[in-house]
Structure formats: C-alpha cells, structure tokens
Write a protein that binds this DNA or RNA. Sequence first.
DNA 1: ACCTGAACACCGTTCAAGT
DNA 2: ACCTGAACACCGTTCAAGT
Lengths: 236, 236
Amino acid sequence: MQSVKRGRPHQDSERTLTQDSILDQAVALIDEVGLEKFSVRALAQRLGVFPGAIYWHLPTRNMVLAGSVNHCLKDVEPLADPSDWKAWLTELLHEYRAIVRRHPNIAPLIVTQLISNAGANFKLVDTILDVLTRAGFQGEKLYHAYDIVITAKVGFVTMEHAALPAEEAESWTEVMKTTIAGLDETGYPNIYKHRAGLANRHFILRWENGVTNPLDASFEAHVYATIEGLRMLLTR
Amino acid sequence: MQSVKRGRPHQDSERTLTQDSILDQAVALIDEVGLEKFSVRALAQRLGVFPGAIYWHLPTRNMVLAGSVNHCLKDVEPLADPSDWKAWLTELLHEYRAIVRRHPNIAPLIVTQLISNAGANFKLVDTILDVLTRAGFQGEKLYHAYDIVITAKVGFVTMEHAALPAEEAESWTEVMKTTIAGLDETGYPNIYKHRAGLANRHFILRWENGVTNPLDASFEAHVYATIEGLRMLLTR
DNA sequence: ACCTGAACACCGTTCAAGT
DNA sequence: ACCTGAACACCGTTCAAGT
C-alpha cells in the first residue's frame, strides 16, 4: 500500500517509487477509470511524480499494462485436491472468474497480452500440467488438454466482462437496444421467439456486460461442458 | 475495391468516400501495420483525405474499429446441414478460425467489442439458435449452450493469434525465451519435463503466436471437446 | 451533403540536468 | 540510482469555412 498524492509532483520525504507500488496504483487506476482513460501521465499524477519517473522503473507503457495484468493474476491457485482433476479444474475456473470480476476492466488485456507473459504465474502452469497428467493425459493429448484449459479459463470470462467504449456508452446502448428490438419474426424467428430471455442477457444480444448482468448459470454450464469435453477427449 | 491514394489530400474526380470504402481500407491498414500503429490519421492519409472527412461518415475511432470487425466477420456462414448440429458447429468453428487467420491483427478487437455489436451478424446468431434448438436444447439450457458456442468460437482463436507489442517484439521475445529456459526441474518439474513439446508452441510458454505457429491439433481437440461437452450438457 | 484546413487538448517517450 | 522539467512527434476530435 502506497500513500496517494494529489496534484502536481513533489520533492519531499518518502522517495520509494518501486515497481510494485507503481503496479498497485496502475491496477487501481484501471479499476477506477477503465482502460480507455488510463494513461502513463494519469498514473504519474496519481503517484505524485513526473511521467518520466515511471519510465525509469518500467520502460514502456506496454510493460506497465502487462505488469498490471500479472499483478492481478499472480495469486490464482486452487486449493482443491490435485488428484481429483475435475474438482480441481472446476475450482480453478471459478477462482479465475472471481479475480476477473474484481478487476473487470483489465479483461481485454488478458487476451491481448496472453503472449507477452514473461512475468506469468508459471507455478500455476506447472500445476495444471501436473493435474492433467494425473488425470491420465499424456503425449500430444496433454498439450491439447492444456490449451483447452487455458482458453476455457480465459475466454468465457473475458468476453463476459467486455465493456462498451467508456465515453460513448449511452449512445451505443441506444443503438443496440433499438437494433435488437427491431429484429423481426420473419427475418430472425429464433431471436424473436426468445427475445425476452436473450435480450441484454446473452452474448451479442446484450448492451450491459457481466459487471451488471453476470452470466452465472451459463458459466456454470461452461465449466461443466469443459470438464466433460476433456473427459471425452481423454478416452477418445 | 477502392483506388488508394498516396501522399496528401486531393481535390479531383472520384469523390465517393463511403462507409464501406473506409472500412475496406481500415481493415487493409490493420492487416498491414497492426492495431498499435493504426490511427484515424493514417487511415485518412491512405484514403487521400483529411482526418476530419472520416468523422463525417463514422463519428468516432471506436466506430471505425467496431465497423472493421463486423466488416471482416459478416460473411461467416457454415454450409453444412443444419439438422446435423455437430457437423454444423464443427464447420462454424473452423470457418471462423479461417477468417481470423486472414485478419489476425483484429483478433483482440473481437473480444473487446463483443459487446458493441450493433452491426453484428444477427442472421448467424439466429441460425445458431436454430441449430441448437434442433439439437434438442430448450429453455435456459438453450441460452447456456448458445453462450458456450459463442465463447468457444471466439475465445480459442483470438488467444491463439494474440500478438506481442509491435515495436518491442524482439525485446519481449528475448526476455521470454530466457525466462522459459530458466524454469528449472525442481521448481517446475512438469514444464521442465515437457519443455521440448511446450516451449514456443503452447499458451503462456510461447513467444510466437498462431500466425507463425498455428495450434492446429489443439484447435481440433478444442472443437471436439466443445461438441462433446455440449452433448453431455444436453442430456444432463 | 461532404470535405478542407486549422486548431485544441491530449498522448507516449526521450533526455539533459539536477540530487 | 532515481527523478525533474521540458521538449518532440504524435494522437482523436471539433468546427468554421468552403464547394
């Protein structure tokens, strides 16, 4: 925890701007204002320093963002018995979703920077491989199961919490409401028939995201289907 | 197809700057230079107009980006028999991946703007609902299956093609190579054991993405697991 | 209706200079 | 080693003015 300065830079006592304190505030800033309004300059002001100061600790804006993602995700670790692979994976997916729901604004970054994860949680990666091996996966099939777990973990939840452009949210909302309301019975019979259950609740047909309209039941079905799919893959 | 102007704005004959021609060039620009170097100003220069001209047709940068995504995805439509839901969904996922592989740089946008899809392919949404209904899904379970299909379609492929920051790619690569090479046997026994098969091939442990290192076999397993998971969900 | 031309308020990043 | 202060080369967006 770092004390937050308001206003312009200072020259006083506590001169410890560390990588960790920067990322703490970066995550807090993204939580508060969203990704679109995040800037290195705004982060500097929040820390009470000049923008250049941040670049001494983290050399680019992308490093700050990647660091923020890892900062949020570093504590993911299921506690279930690793020999019960179904229970363990179920808990993994739920715990991951809980973390994203605490920091929904970073959701898009997780996908974007899934390849730039030099600071990733490799202990978790190793445990996933361990659990899948105990489940019986081996050879190439182990790698396929691993990729399926990673994408199942990240995909649903990040999409569930994808957000409208911050500044223009209400105009987007208006357009989408009328667009979806205008899908008629002859052109779109299935959407029309289920419009009460689908509109503003499920993917593509919604204008609010998982922050206000969580897809709890769908997520639970997703977890179930993922595990059953893996079980089928195991004995293919 | 629109003829492309080089250099600064003009004042000559063909004065038809349409929404479609703008999006054509926006997609082309993103394909060429990537999302990080995309700008409205660069797009304007490519079209041979002043930046302000674009804003007459598309009122914000976000509209240009959302339009570009829809422009790429509007032609997705499987041809398989819709009464064979497994074959139809399999083709859907494969066709979707083929399109993303033609425009890999838009991958991150698909997730980000999955909620701002007023111009989405609603005919496809309706057909997915139709196919799932024929498969036997009904009530809430239909909506769960629908959400699973959407996320299975988008999640894996977008993550497969997530890219390193354009400008700093080679420095990231270097860091990741050494980081992964440094995961020792005692701390990370499973990663270490499978390092030959995993390194630079599978999620989190790679430094190249699906453009150069496609995850064909994993994707095929993902499709299989998704369908089998849905089949299990159907009879739960 | 559609576009120009120029302006405004921001960015990320760099770097000499200070301590 | 760490940060200041100011600069550079960009942005998205707006808007009077032209045609």
